[in-house]
C-alpha cells in the first residue's frame, strides 16, 4: 500500500503543480490529500476528455499537470489522446483506477472495461505500468522518464486499496 501523501510529495518534487480528473473511489484518500495540499491544486473536471484538455493547456503554458480517472474514462477520451495529446506530442501522466478485476464483480458496469483496459492502452500505443505497492517510486521514475523522453502519454494502473 502506498500513502497518498507520499505520492503527492513525489509528484510535487517532480514539478507537478496541478492535477485534474474525475474521481474514483480507489482515489478517495488521494483526492482528500489533494484538497489539503498546498503544493498541488486539483481542478474537478466534468469529463475525462475535458481533463486532458486542461492538462494539455497547462503544459502549453509550460507547467505540469497530472490526471486522475477511472478506466471507464479511457473509453471517453480517445479523441483527446489521438488528436490532441498524442498528435501534438504533449507529455501526460495519468493515474487510472483498474476497475473490473475480481473484487469488482458486484459492479458489472466495470467488468467489460476491466477486461479490455490493457488492450485499449496497447491499441492507443500508450505505455502503462501496474503500480501495486513497494516499488512505486521506481515505477513512477520509469514512467516519467518515458513520458519526458518521448513526449508521450503514460498511464499508471492502480488496483483497489493500493493507494491509501
Amino acid at each position: 500500500m502506498i500513502k497518498s501523501v507520499d505520492i503527492l510529495n513525489y509528484l510535487s518534487a517532480n514539478n507537478f503543480e496541478l492535477s485534474t480528473g474525475v474521481p474514483c473511489s480507489y482515489f478517495k484518500e488521494l483526492l482528500i490529500e489533494l484538497d489539503n495540499s498546498a503544493d498541488i491544486q486539483y481542478i474537478a473536471a466534468t469529463r475525462e476528455d475535458e481533463a486532458v484538455g486542461i492538462a494539455c493547456g497547462y503544459y502549453l503554458g509550460k507547467k505540469n499537470c497530472f490526471l486522475i480517472m477511472q478506466n471507464s474514462g479511457l473509453a471517453t477520451i480517445g479523441d483527446a489522446f489521438t488528436s490532441l495529446a498524442q498528435l501534438y506530442e504533449i507529455p501526460l501522466l495519468i493515474f487510472v483506477s483498474y476497475r473490473g478485476l475480481e473484487p469488482d464483480k458486484t459492479f458489472p458496469e466495470h467488468v467489460i472495461m476491466g477486461n479490455v483496459t490493457e488492450a485499449v492502452l496497447e491499441a492507443y500505443g500508450i505505455p502503462y505500468w501496474n503500480m501495486k505497492g513497494g516499488n512505486w517510486r521506481e515505477i513512477l521514475d520509469e514512467a516519467l522518464e518515458c513520458m519526458n523522453k518521448d513526449s508521450s502519454v503514460v498511464c499508471i494502473l492502480v488496483e483497489k486499496e493500493v493507494i491509501i
Partner: peptide
C-alpha cells in the same frame, strides 16, 4: 498561437489550463 487540428469540444478546457499556467 495554439491552432487546434482536432479535439473537437476541448478549446475552452485547453484555454482554462493555459490560463492557470500563465
Amino acid at each position: 498561437q495554439v491552432y487546434l487540428r482536432g479535439s473537437m469540444g476541448l478549446p475552452m478546457s485547453i484555454g482554462l489550463g493555459l490560463a492557470l499556467a500563465q
